[in-house]
Design a binder for these strands. Structure first.
Lengths: 210, 210
DNA sequence: TCGTATCTTTACCAATTGGTAAAAAGCCAG
DNA sequence: CTGGCTTTTTACCAATTGGTAAAGATACGA
């Protein structure tokens, strides 16, 4: 029965050591290339090079280029939303928002490729992530916006539109990863994440202090 | 002398009516496609389709794909920096900054493709725009940052890092164009540029009021 | 209206791309 | 140590890509 020779469509038995190692290598290499060149700008040969495998060998582990991309996006979605999930509804509102901001800056610093991968995907209209936005992102954002609206109604935060607040936090924090090329030119190469922490702390403190 | 058959390398004489019309069509079509798919994701056939011309005809007007892209970037640079150039050093500081913010939001609304074209280019490391950043953007930003620093020293604005302030204005305003796909999902399709104006006005007023 | 310069089309390439078939090699349990 | 699985390599495609050559059509001033 040579119908399913590759692990892609195999039974859900534990993948072998080699499989885990090589899939990891492929995803790591793919993240590097996709985040820099976007989906269409990336070739399987580049991924294969980066992973130290041959192109057909890549296609032994993944059904095709698109599956690699979608796998990356799926695997990353959770980590990406974690900082927002970590907002504690029982905490002190201003603290919770500020801590969210600082976590997001740290993600920009620690995971710039992941940030650019998402940025690329959204920029191009989220063609391979539409469902994820609806089912993963939207409910979480709705909840968070409602939570913030509640805090504002209780007088524990200054009055702002919660959704635009969230947009502004995403924009300002991810900017440092996504537009790094520009930031580098203007800061003359100095890593200025400390400056970002300080500035954004001031920004959201002044905006939100009740 | 069939050595320079095309207008690309022709003498600087006034281009013909047909040339002006077709170059404009090509650039318009190219802006549409480049801004959506990035440089490598765009094909000459797509541009040719959008422009209503054949591929070889495109290459009669431009030496190649890269020249089209660079031409777009160059042509747009001025318009892109105009809002910052329009900041009046003699004006009331808070007013000047707020008007800059509102102009940038309007550019996001009016020219989303241009915004995404730049975003794509920067995301990928600005490979075709490095010099422009150094010679066009950097001096202007340095001047503006110095101007803001002066205003702060005079006590006419609250203390903030001018460069990070500029980053945050870019990030928050361009977000609405660059990440439109995400914004659309979360606002359920409603055009919310009015909300953006109101939110960012509040944000920067509270941040900067002396 | 005629001839020249401008513009457009047709017919191609060579290189690259995502992907496949199938043989060869490696691994490992019995 | 061997037979059957997994993994990798080799040798290919067909489609797409950016780009070219050169013939053909068109505009337009004299």
């Amino acid at each position: 029965m040579p119908a399913s020779p590759d692990p892609v469509s195999a039974a859900p038995s534990r993948p072998s050591r080699i499989q885990r190692r090589n899939r990891k290598r492929i995803l790591e290499a793919a993240l590097e290339v996709f985040s820099q060149h976007g989906y269409r700008g990336t070739t399987l040969d580049q991924i294969a090079d980066g992973a130290g495998l041959s192109k057909p060998n890549i296609l032994y582990y993944f059904a095709g280029k698109e599956e690699i991309h979608v796998t990356l996006l799926n695997d990353l979605m959770d980590a990406w939303l974690a900082p927002m999930r970590a907002i504690d509804p029982g905490g002190e509102p201003l603290d919770e928002i500020l801590r969210y901001v600082h976590r997001k800056i740290e993600m920009s610093r620690a995971l710039p490729r992941e940030s650019r991968l998402f940025a690329n995907e959204i920029l191009q209209g989220a063609p391979r992530m539409g469902p994820h936005l609806e089912t993963g992102l939207k409910p979480l954002v709705d909840d968070t916006a409602a939570l913030i609206a509640g805090w504002i109604a209780e007088g524990r935060l200054a009055r702002v539109d919660p959704l635009h607040l969230i947009f502004s936090i995403w924009a300002t924090t991810q900017h440092y990863a996504d537009f790094d090329a520009q930031v580098q030119v203007l800061t003359e190469g100095g890593d200025d994440y400390d400056g970002a922490h300080a500035f954004l702390d001031t920004l959201y403190r002044r905006l939100l202090a009740p």
